[in-house]
Simulated scan of single mutants.
Amino acid sequence: MRLYSVVIPVYNRPEEVRELLTSLLDQTFKNFEVLIIEDGSTNKCDQVVEEFNHQLNIRYYFKENSGQGFTRNYGFKKAKGDYLIVFDSDCLIPNHYFQTVDDFLEVNSIDAFGGPDSAHPSFNTLQKAISYSMTSPFTTGGIRGNKKHVGKFHPRSFNMGISRKVFEETGGYRLTRMGEDIEFSIRVINAGFKTGLIESAYVYHKRRTSISQFYKQLHFFGRARVNVNRFFPGEMKLIHLLPAVFTLGFIGWLSTYLWSDLLFKIGGLTISFFFLAILIHSSLKTKNIAVGFASICTAFVQLFAYGMGLITEKISPRGNQPFAQK
């Protein structure tokens, strides 16, 4: 029977860790260990972990702050499993997750995998809207958790598994933040390892719980995409540039108010149709019109923040110098 090692980097989020560990108690497949790696937190979760000592095969480590990428490497070195699985601390894990993964690996020989993220019924309206916008065809092209995405599947570190051989041959993460999971996935594929999406191995990803936090996160994601392209020129695809096109187009549309009433009205009508499509699609998908209206806001924030991050990083003084290389 395969042993899975769950590596969870944590920084000042004890209550999230409690929720995540609680969700792991109900797994139908039990042959896994959990490694909580505290990345120099001041608000530690060691006491939370102690509450689960007799219910889970769990270990706790504290280390100096070095960012999530190198913290995952730290956990990989301590892990005993055949497969190493990474979750973000703000995830909840459905009780079938490990059984689904194990069943898939019984009939499919892959070296690295990932699964989608979804919204838990307990999530509030904003969290559901954020979950929608992060997976919507109108904002991401449906490339997250979709077999029909562009190019080979690149697992993301909020829900990702690798074989021990992958870690031993690649050395794990070379970046600690700023696109570290994308850079790692590209190296895994370039090394000849086979990757795959396990559609049913989804997690409930709570993500940011305020618009300002969501903006900061997506702005950082935009910067990260540019950083990855510094390591691997050509990895910046057209679909990654669309948020920047949206951002520049939106700013350009606002400027037409000063010199062309006709263009301002045409642009306003185009934007209205776009967000009307999001309202309808989100409302139907979530079966909640309140989430549909909130999705207009989160979709705008996602596109604008990602676009601004991409633009500002592209013109930054760093030029072609990658950020946070080991």
Results as ranks from 00 to 15, higher is better:
R72L: 12
E38M: 03
G309W: 13
A324E: 14
S133M: 14
L242I: 09
F323E: 15
Q213I: 02
F293A: 15
G40S: 00
R230P: 11
N73E: 01
E15L: 10
L84V: 06
L310F: 13
T298L: 00
S89F: 09
V7D: 03
T22P: 03
E38H: 04
T256G: 01
V7P: 10
K152L: 15
F113C: 10
Y61K: 00
I186S: 05
A294S: 15
S316H: 05
S133A: 15
I162H: 03
L35E: 10
I93H: 07
D39A: 00
F70E: 11
I211F: 09
I130M: 03
G292P: 03
F52W: 01
T209E: 02
V7H: 09
T71K: 13
I278N: 08
L3W: 05
M236I: 12
F250T: 08
G161W: 04
R2F: 06
L126K: 02
L197P: 05
R318G: 13
A244Q: 04
I93P: 09
N146A: 02
A244M: 11
W259F: 12
K285C: 11
I189C: 02
A129G: 10
K30Q: 12
L263F: 04
Y132T: 10
M1G: 11
P322E: 15
F98M: 07
H154R: 14
D181N: 07
F246V: 05
F32Q: 07
G196M: 08
L35D: 09
L56V: 00
I311E: 09
T256V: 01
A112K: 12
L310Q: 12
V107G: 11
Y60Q: 01
D103V: 04
F62L: 03
D90W: 10
E19S: 10
G267S: 07
F98R: 02
I280V: 14
R223N: 10
L248K: 08
Q55H: 06
S66G: 11
A119F: 02
S210T: 10
L35F: 14
D26I: 06
D181H: 11
T312V: 06
H205Q: 10
M236Y: 05
F29R: 12
L24E: 07
K128L: 12
T247N: 03
S118K: 15
Y11T: 01
K44C: 01
G319T: 00
T71A: 09
L258K: 06
V6K: 05
R225Q: 13
P243T: 09
F221G: 04
R156G: 15
Q47I: 04
I130Y: 01
R13N: 05
E50H: 09
Y83T: 06
K237N: 08
R144N: 14
F220I: 06
T195V: 11
D88S: 06
N288C: 14
M236N: 11
F52V: 00
L218M: 15
F323S: 15
Y61R: 01
L20C: 08
F293D: 02
S109D: 14
R230M: 10
L197C: 04
R156T: 15
H205N: 06
H120M: 04
G249F: 08
K63I: 08
M178A: 10
K77Y: 07
H149P: 07
N288E: 13
V291Y: 04
S118I: 13
I289K: 13
F304H: 00
